[in-house]
Design a protein around this nucleic acid. Structure first.
Lengths: 307, 307
DNA sequence: GAGTGATATCAGCAACGGTTATAAGAAGCC
DNA sequence: GGCTTCTTATAACCGTTGCTGATATCACTC
């Protein structure tokens, strides 16, 4: 029989305690169980490892030679158990998120800060991708939770999906713009405007175009087609004209009075953000904790619910 | 169920091999056995450690966090197994000997050198004591083999004893001494001599006195009572007079023609050296190897047998 | 010589962990 | 599209291990 890890741990404990009986109580075993393990270990080595005397045992020369290795095994095992304990108590762990740009930049940071306050030991990895890439990383296992744009379409097999945020594309204007005084604009007014939009292929642009098509309308002049949300925002701020931007991405500027967000009546510019994730049972504890945290946010803090 | 060392080793192997099936062959287990161990480990941790894909498995974030600990356990265990292997093959080990002065100084070094040539990895510890101390250290377990002076008296309980060397106290004289031409002296001539002896209480002195008493004789003048074998030897070399010394301690000087060793007829000055040791089964491999080595010497090389 | 404290030994038994056989899922290939 | 061929998962069975509880043994103490 070869050398068993348990035997080495037992041996190390026996030497540390200096007694088979004491080691038995420490290890929550009966004394014969310990004696048997020691016997097996000595057989494996081929010679006695302990000498018995009145008040316990002491290692032989061979035992002393083996002891450091036994201690190394015991140490390594204790380290592994401690690590597992930390993981179980969520004192340690990794949370791999993948999210499309808008979610990653404008929604998640605030949420993640609060989540980390609750679990400071967790290391959060946020991958900023587009929706398709995010879903692929989810399937790969590179991330456990994916935040994607768009309504619940076809969730990948074996995955759950739910809407976590109801965003909406709005028309952003400067406070000194004539429209700024109005509560909203109507879709038919768009034909007269010179607007700023994102480039074709971007999520925001697609939402706008789909809504226009559905409403049987067309855009007027496109004053500027900008790549990237911040570019559009900057163009609007500079006075180029009204621009289509997610309400989510405008929160700070609206709050600061730098821009005004106007809903477009007659167009369905809603833009739900979905969370896609494997069944909770197959998720890491960290991911489960984050799912629960999100649910808590939605129910407990209504300002994060509908747009 | 708690985290088992075997599971960690298996996990480390699976990650290294990148496949459950390959790890199974490496570990000489069936594939289901490995799968089961991984399942148990994942249960203990509380979340999945591996993600499956077409050509095997890769660790999850949690698995990656646990991996170093699993590797540490595997490394430590491998180290312990290697160490045990070395001990079994006598490439490593300790041999603790305790011996009375005469044996330790004049007999063992030569033997030990040859023994170490055969087993270079063994570390030999030679404790130089007197016979009583040697026997106590044997009982304590501080040494495995004890070389003591005197005939097989009462071997300690559970110990074996055998004579390994037949020494003899002789009368050493300088080559220019009148006695040097003779093959031997007779005990009754001692009364006329001025001799050099060890101090009372030394083994050599006791052998001489016991023999004299048994023969109904007394010593003549003691010219010098010296403490220590080398002191007696030096006194004889300086011409103080004949001296009682163990033949064993005279080998070099006799060989070099510096001294002549004269047996004393009519006195039983034999002085066997005994080896006391526990039963071979309870000895370390190193000690067993040394016992076998000694037996080989005695049978194979007669010059080490009788005096 | 009885008492105490330690380890060794023994018999019995439950459970773990292994094996073989089989299923099931995904990818690649005509 | 069905077929093959990798995977890993599941199930039934079974042998061995290793534990427990009781008891023996041994050494030292009083």
């Amino acid at each position: 029989m070869s050398v068993q890890p348990d035997h080495l741990v037992t041996f190390a404990t026996v030497v540390r305690e200096g007694s088979v009986t004491r080691a038995a109580t420490v290890l929550h075993r009966s004394q014969p169980a310990i004696s048997l393990q020691l016997k097996k270990l000595a057989e494996a080595v081929g010679e006695p490892l302990l000498v018995r005397h009145r008040h316990g045992v002491t290692p032989t020369a061979t035992g002393a030679a083996l002891l450091p290795h036994a201690q190394a095994v015991a140490r390594a095992l204790a380290g592994a158990r401690r690590s597992v304990g930390e993981i179980r108590r969520l004192e340690r762990g990794d949370l791999w998120l993948t999210a499309s740009m808008t979610v990653a930049v404008y929604l998640l940071p605030e949420v993640l800060v609060r989540f980390r306050e609750r679990h400071p030991g967790l290391q959060i990895h946020l991958l900023t991708r587009n929706s398709r890439e995010a879903l692929r990383e989810l399937a790969d296992g590179a991330a456990e939770l994916a935040f994607v744009e768009g309504p619940p379409a076809a969730p990948p097999p074996g995955m759950s999906q739910r809407v976590v945020f109801h965003d909406e594309v709005v028309l952003a204007v400067r406070p000194d713009h004539p429209l700024a005084a109005r509560r909203a604009v109507h879709a038919r007014d768009l034909g007269d405007m010179q607007v700023v939009t994102r480039e074709p292929g971007s999520g925001t642009r697609e939402v706008v175009e789909r809504a226009l098509v559905a409403a049987g309308l067309r855009l007027g002049d496109i004053a500027l087609e900008a790549t990237g949300i911040e570019t559009v925002k900057e163009a609007v701020l500079q006075g180029v004209g009204p621009g289509f931007i997610s309400r989510l991405a405008l929160r700070r500027e609206v709050g600061a009075g730098l821009l005004v967000a106007l809903p477009v009546a007659g167009l369905d510019l809603r833009r739900p953000m979905s969370l896609v994730h494997p069944p909770a049972e197959t998720c890491s504890r960290a991911a489960r904790a984050f799912l629960a945290f999100l649910t808590g946010l939605e129910s407990g803090e209504p300002d994060h619910g509908a747009a």
